[in-house]
């Protein structure tokens, strides 16, 4: 059993947990993910690791309620346990000194972006963070990002905080202003698609971290397959990070909708019950 030692709600549907998982805390690197199962009836859900504390033996996970299991996880409190947490899975981010790096993201993608920002900064890069959200209240981890980067740009759709506009507006400003050697983007699939189109135009090598549907997460089921450079890849063992310019985002978005009807039904049941 994996005990929850702290919990913070980032917004109505997004919770941040510190969970006891000493072996994973020790072996994880930026970019890795875990598979979590709440209890006997729960789904196996992939979650990217947002942070870890080796001394405390904890990892930090940020969970957005989208289906039955994630909604039930977010209802847990300090002292409750997750039945299973397994990992670290996938390949770690290729951290090295690139020069100037843009790390951009939105939604819960900002959580797994944080360890990459930290590691890129520690590797001696100039790190410029671009955070995007619909509105001010949905901007998360801003202080942590500021503490670990050279600059933070905030973009909101409604202009309630930072600049008004979508993520690509902020990223383009930076690219036009100075030379950028690398871009890392983690967020909703549609956001990653448009960042990939933009950075391709300016020839900035970009990596994205994909969070697809998974069952086992260890290279057995193939539920997470995506097309990258015309070839089928498995996000769990070949990824989760890929060259953004090569990813077929349209196919990925379609595949992400495979269980939309079941997710909606589950949410309705929870809301009624």
């Amino acid at each position: 059993m994996f005990k929850i030692v702290s919990k913070k709600m980032f917004s109505e549907k997004v919770a941040c947990f510190e969970v006891e998982a000493p072996l994973i805390a020790q072996s994880r690197k930026a970019g890795h993910f875990v598979i979590v199962r709440l209890d006997e009836k729960g789904e196996r859900i992939p979650l990217t690791i947002a942070d870890a504390d080796v001394e405390k033996g904890t990892i930090t996970l940020v969970v957005q309620a989208v289906g039955a299991s994630s909604t039930r996880i977010n209802a847990l409190n300090v002292g409750d346990c997750l039945a299973d947490v397994v990992g670290p899975l996938g390949h770690a981010t290729d951290i090295r000194k690139y020069g100037t790096v843009i790390c951009c993201g939105g939604g819960v993608g900002v959580a797994p972006l944080l360890p990459i920002v930290k590691a890129m900064h520690e590797a001696g890069n100039k790190v410029i963070v671009v955070l995007a959200a619909r509105t001010k209240d949905l901007i998360i981890l801003e202080d942590e990002m500021r503490a670990n980067s050279d600059e933070v740009l905030i973009m909101t759709d409604d202009g309630s905080y930072g600049q008004k506009g979508v993520i690509t507006v902020g990223v383009e400003q930076v690219i036009l202003r100075e030379h950028v050697d690398k871009c890392v983007c983690i967020g909703p699939t549609i956001m990653m698609k448009f960042v990939a189109l933009l950075t391709k135009k300016y020839d900035v090598p970009t990596i994205v971290s994909l969070n697809t549907i998974m069952v086992d997460g260890t290279g057995m089921c193939g539920a997470c397959r995506v097309t990258v450079g015309g070839k089928t890849k498995f996000v769990c063992v070949d990824g989760p990070e890929f060259d953004a310019a090569e990813v077929n985002f349209d196919e990925m978005m379609s595949r992400m909708r495979a269980y939309r009807a079941e997710e909606t039904e589950a949410m309705n049941k929870i809301n009624i019950g």
């Binding site: 193939g222 196919e251 379609s254």
Partner: peptide, 20 residues
């Protein structure tokens, strides 16, 4: 890793490995 046939449409919704 489950094998697939690498034919058009194999990544459509509703096509899955027996493992999955």
């Amino acid at each position: 890793l489950p094998r697939f046939m690498n034919i058009p449409g194999e990544n459509l919704i509703g096509v899955m490995s027996s493992n999955e």
